[in-house]
Amino acid sequence: MQEAAQLVSKVLVLNDDAEVRGHIKAFCDAHHLIPVKPQAGAALSVLKSNVDLGAIFMQETYTGEGGNALELARAIHAIRPELPIFLRREAASHLDDLPDLYRGIFTAAYTTSTIDELAPLIDKNIFSFQYPNALVRGITEITKTTLETQFKGVEVRTEAPYMVRDRIIYGELFTLIPLESTWCRGYMMLQTEEGPLIKYVEDGRTHISRDPANFRDINHVMGEVTNLIWGAFKNRFISNEPVDWRQSQVPLIVNHEHRYISFGSEDPQLCFRYTLVDPNGEATPLVLYQRFVFNLSWAPEKFKENEVLTEDLFESGELELF
């Protein structure tokens, strides 16, 4: 199997004790987690926002929201039931003595001295999928090149790919396209905000230039970008080997009120974030999130990049006779 990419994941830390936060940060640093904490009283609003998270670390006596920590955990679980919650306790690293009402909310309990015992659960809940480095690097290259060709006068900035477990939709517009191969079956999704994209169309920064622009125009732009990325992904990573099209499917669920989408699987998702920035400062930055959901089949041991034919490189101009 090819070398696996080392990914990261953001986790929300709800803890009042500064000394304990130091222990949690050391654990996070050692296990490729990025700890973030909300302002006092802001935890629920943060969780209702577009923050991509892999898990929550919560103190049993946390008072940051001004109430009972266990009741706060119930509220969090209602908002983001897909996120594992790890409960820090003072003496017991188990959940056996909690009332049934709360016990099922938490993935596990730990104490400051037993935090290292969470490592296998982090691997299981967040990093259960191993992604070949060539795939992760290639996705970034393909997407960055596509965005640079489809948007004029912008610089495309990329961030380190990361793992998420939440199902929150970012912005008002998202596209979805299936991926089918001998080594994966699932979807690629792009998400963005409508307002900045409409402005890009009205300013003539896309292949469509129309003022005023409407939602159909930006639908067309996002559809074209998605199709080009999909085509490049297919050419680079999906071979011509036959795929069994009789395999099972699962329903997708979209809840517009809660900006939520489910692919019928609890598996974590591979996420990329791209920001389109005008070097001259004349346009509002445009943020796009790209997610890969391999919810139907995942066999990274079968993954391989397609060979690039020399003739294709000559035709594209990337090679020329010396």
Rank of each mutant, 00 (worst) to 15 (best):
M1C: 13
E3Q: 14
A5F: 11
L7T: 08
L7V: 08
V11L: 12
L14E: 03
D16E: 14
D16S: 07
E19K: 12
H23K: 08
P35F: 03
V36L: 01
P38T: 01
G41L: 01
A42I: 10
A42W: 10
S45F: 11
L47C: 02
K48E: 14
N50D: 14
N50L: 03
V51I: 15
D52W: 08
L53E: 04
A55Y: 02
M58E: 05
Q59N: 15
Q59Y: 05
E60F: 08
T63Y: 02
T63L: 06
N68K: 08
A69C: 08
L70R: 01
E71F: 05
A73M: 05
R74E: 05
I79T: 11
E82K: 04
L83W: 12
P84R: 02
R89V: 15
R89H: 02
E90R: 11
E90Q: 13
H94I: 13
L95T: 13
D97E: 12
P99E: 10
L101P: 07
L101S: 15
Y102P: 01
Y102A: 07
T111A: 02
S113M: 10
S113C: 01
I115Y: 05
E117S: 10
I122F: 02
I122E: 03
N125G: 00
I126N: 00
I126H: 05
F127C: 05
Y131H: 07
P132C: 03
I139K: 07
T140S: 13
I142W: 03
K144R: 11
Q150G: 08
G153E: 02
V156D: 09
R157K: 13
T158G: 05
E159Y: 09
P161D: 06
Y162T: 06
R165V: 11
D166V: 10
D166T: 13
R167N: 14
I168K: 15
I168Y: 09
I169C: 10
Y170A: 14
E172F: 04
L173M: 12
F174V: 01
T175E: 03
T182L: 04
W183G: 01
G186Q: 09
M188R: 09
T192C: 15
E193W: 11
G195Y: 09
P196S: 04
L197W: 12
D203A: 10
I208W: 12
S209Q: 13
R210K: 14
R210P: 03
D211F: 14
N214P: 00
N214K: 09
I218C: 10
V225G: 02
N227K: 12
W230F: 11
K234H: 05
F237R: 02
F237A: 00
N240G: 12
P242Q: 03
W245M: 09
W245R: 07
S248W: 01
H256V: 06
E257R: 10
E257A: 08
H258R: 11
S262H: 05
F272H: 14
R273V: 08
T275F: 07
V277P: 01
P279L: 00
G281E: 00
E282W: 07
A283Q: 14
P285K: 07
P285G: 03
V287T: 13
V293L: 04
L296K: 10
S297K: 15
W298D: 15
E305K: 11
E305T: 11
E307W: 07
E307H: 14
V308P: 09
T310E: 06
F314R: 14
E315I: 15
G317Q: 02
E318R: 10
